[in-house]
Design a protein around this nucleic acid. Structure first.
Lengths: 229, 229
DNA sequence: GGTTGTATAATTGTATACAATAATACAAAC
DNA sequence: GTTTGTATTATTGTATACAATTATACAACC
């Protein structure tokens, strides 16, 4: 029951109009509705979303900071998007960062948080058996988010949450491959055990392996499918 | 002469009014002018900086995304700042990320970029001998920025640039301790050699050690001085 | 004294107006 | 046919107006 209110950036600003606009455009970029090179015209976005320019502009400025668009003075914002190489790089970086997160989480996690983690894995197991990929991915994300939180490190949490969101589509693709879902579940169960055994070395090692496997699985994808990202 | 126009986020948006406002407030937070818990009143910032609310609001939204302020709907933005623990965490994360950056840079760096790197180290040596800490830190930053660029990885570049900016004040403190400047110079020279020898293993190892040393140096600081951060 | 209610002020949220800049179209010149 | 110049349009930059929300002050009440 504990930290159900502490959620990631993306969810947190869903209350404000500006926040929703930001999330919308960000997903539109990540999902390829706006492709690299496209220019984001403020008035067009206004009409499309039924809001004024102010929240649109604020959202664009945030996207600019994130590097998802490049904004040229007096000319406007052109979409940068994230490339296949960016995603590969993110996975390589995550190999070490997720490991660190698991270590720190193991050192600092509370009993309540362990319960939540267990709960997430159980639900993931349930939906893995049901073969419900959407729900399954939801609890996969939740598992990782809980570890970020448990690490009690704001910089780490922030960096990993952003990265995790960026590679969401890649994960989507990855979960489609036969057997992958079951492997992910097994790996999560092993990591959970290491954490609840309070074994940081093991937790870090297993998590590193886990992300490495995800990375390998992604790279082995059909290049044409990957292009769709 | 090459990539002198490719600079980090913070410098890039100094053209636009909004960009200057953002940089200003960000530094005011990092330098402690606005302390954690303070609330940023838009109209007050307007008067202070002589601009209208629009650029102020856009800047605040960016700070919100960065996590430097927390914005509560209809109530406004309160300063979060970064804690001593955040800085410690950033250093621990940088130990591995800077290592990766150095490895990737070594694998991908161009001859032009090596020249620039050499140039930066030479200027750093010059100002180390002159004991000009401000200039010295400028070329210390440049050295790292050039490595980020040379890594050719947008996600890595982005993450490390942000972190590097956040710990600027901490570095300031660190460079004040006797002998540190000379050690930093020696370490940079060794890293430069490894990179121009195209030895990724060595470059990564030396860079990891370099950040570790910086981290140790920081932690050994007088806790009272650290509190001033 | 403390609490509650209400009027006022302060502040943010959103939309829009106007100015400045850049893009476009099209005619005139060569 | 290509280029140049100019008028028009589109778009962004900045400021401001108005609405909605929240904070504050202060009196009335218990």
């Amino acid at each position: 029951m504990a930290a159900n209110n502490i959620i990631n950036d993306t969810d947190a600003n869903l209350n404000s109009l500006q926040g929703r606009v930001f999330t919308q455009i960000q997903n539109d970029i990540l999902n390829g509705k706006y492709e690299p090179g496209d220019s984001l015209i403020e008035t067009r976005l206004c009409e499309e979303m039924g809001v004024s320019r102010t929240p649109i502009r604020e959202a664009i400025r945030q996207l600019e900071l994130e590097g998802l668009v490049q904004s040229i003075p007096n000319k406007g914002a052109i979409v940068n998007g994230i490339s296949t190489k960016d995603i590969d790089d993110i996975y390589k970086i995550r190999i070490v960062l997720e490991g660190i997160a698991a270590r720190w989480a193991t050192e600092k996690i509370t009993d309540d948080e362990i319960s939540e983690l267990k709960n997430a894995v159980e639900l993931q197991e349930f939906y893995t058996q049901k073969n419900d990929i959407e729900q399954l991915m939801k609890y996969d994300s939740r598992f990782h988010d809980l570890i970020y939180e448990a690490s009690k490190s704001k910089p780490l949490m922030h960096t990993l949450s952003t990265f995790h969101h960026y590679v969401q589509r890649a994960r989507n693709l990855s979960f489609g491959t036969p057997g992958r879902a079951l492997n992910v579940l097994k790996e999560h169960e092993a990591i959970l055990k290491a954490i609840s055994d309070r074994n940081p070395d093991e937790a870090e090692k297993l998590t590193t392996e886990h992300v490495k496997n995800a990375s390998i699985n992604l790279i082995m994808q059909n290049p044409e499918k990957r292009k769709q990202l």
